[in-house]
Design a binder for these strands. Structure first.
Lengths: 241, 241
DNA sequence: GTCCGCATCGCTGTATACAATGAAGGGATG
DNA sequence: CATCCCTTCATTGTATACAGCGATGCGGAC
């Protein structure tokens, strides 16, 4: 693996994880020393981050991590909705039913686990397992669709969504409901019905967006500062709930 | 403007125009000398092209222009359909009716011009004007939607589509029909009706894909070699017809 | 006291030199 | 005669040195 690739992967993950917060100045010398490489491969990494829209540069002032706000969630969902609905439809046409039936069962189990969340020792661990499950679904859908162009658009979109979603948080009730919605999506894909799969995905995304919007409006009135506090605690990189 | 930006723009345009054909080896030294710059900025340009999917590199063997085939048209339309339909819907909600009414009129005029194509001295010129008009529509829609994430996804998709579409060609009848379909899209957007706008766009894209598919099947049986001959003549960069 | 201009400094942008890796060709050996 | 290995070369990957641009801070003038 090339040094520039490592630098890109590292910086990208750090931006997505919120380690590098929006507005952070990415000095070339500073980052090169930190990552243990020279400026040349680092600059290639920055070029790619800028192309991804994760960073931006101003002539003479250097490269900074792109800012993102809750308002971007609305814009991102305008892109996410058609992409994911289309993916669900195509997955229903092409996917292996057995694989999605298995995923549907796991989402059913996950829902029960999440509803019994308060009894667990480490509730956050259940959340993490659930987020990992949604990522498995994303992966399964992407493989079933077998369309590199669509997959790439989804990957790019999700990178931004992860950052925007970090500004919100999820109540356990929402995660359980999300699990049920995901189960419906899996079941519809497994049954090979594109229309139903698309509709199930549409329902899931609409509810997800509605929840985020409602939660943000509440937070605006009560505790606007909890958004930044979330930065440190959130560890997963899922886009979904 | 930075040298690396110029290199990126130049190479990207040359790949889209078909000057650099799929499979062309992009030697770093060779291209750096040709474009009159050093290897460092050129490598940054290549990184971006690779990120765009327009080129790919194999360790030790250098960077080559990505191959593309007519089969990719189907995959690209699986992405294009939901993106453009969504764009049309949002443009109908947010766009300036006057601007799209004006565009509708121009498409009406373009249709008549294209139907009278054989009487012109330079039929290709009429085609060029029409392609420019479709690009104006794309631009107007993108501005009306005012969603950078959606616009970026469209831009990336269109880059590939231009290359794939270069493998086909358009009969004058198809262009005239395309103009009429575009007029319907403009009218629907101008009327502020998202459902109709999305449907009009859907119809246009389905017919466009059907035409390309049919034309390719015909070409497969009759003159498979005309596809490469098209490379030299096509000058426009429109994705549309 | 404030504002304009200039010099300095730090950073980015570019070029070049060096290192390392993989491909290709020729020769030797089975 | 085929095959395997080794040498050689070209090309990429990385580091560093240099140049140019913009930001910043100080000094002077109004």
């Amino acid at each position: 693996m090339r040094a520039s690739d490592r630098a890109y992967d590292t910086l990208r993950q750090e931006i997505l994880d919120g380690v590098l917060t929006p507005g952070s100045l990415l000095g070339e010398v500073e980052q090169a020393e930190r990552l243990g490489l020279s400026r040349t491969p680092l600059r290639e990494a920055l070029s790619r981050l800028i192309a991804d829209g994760l960073a931006s540069q101003t002539r003479g002032r250097g490269t900074v991590v792109s800012s993102i706000s809750v308002a971007d969630v609305d814009l991102l969902f305008e892109l996410r909705l058609p992409l994911e609905v289309q993916s669900a439809r195509l997955a229903a046409e092409r996917g292996d039913p057995a694989r999605f039936t298995a995923l549907a069962d796991r989402f059913t189990a996950a829902e029960q686990t999440l509803r019994a969340r308060q009894r667990e020792r480490d509730p956050a661990q259940a959340d993490e397992r659930y987020y990992a499950l949604t990522e498995e679904l994303d992966e399964a859908v992407s493989e079933a669709v077998a369309n590199p162009y669509l997959s790439l658009a989804l990957r790019s979109m999700r990178a931004h969504l992860v950052r925007a979603r970090r500004l919100s948080q999820h109540a356990p009730e929402r995660l359980a409901a999300s699990a049920r919605e995901h189960r419906e999506v899996c079941a519809a894909i497994a049954s090979g019905d594109p229309e139903t799969a698309g509709a199930a995905m549409l329902i899931h995304l609409r509810r997800s967006l509605a929840y985020i919007t409602a939660q943000h409006e509440t937070a605006q009135h009560e505790t606007p500062q909890h958004q930044t506090a979330q930065h440190a605690t959130a560890q997963h990189s899922s886009t979904d709930a």
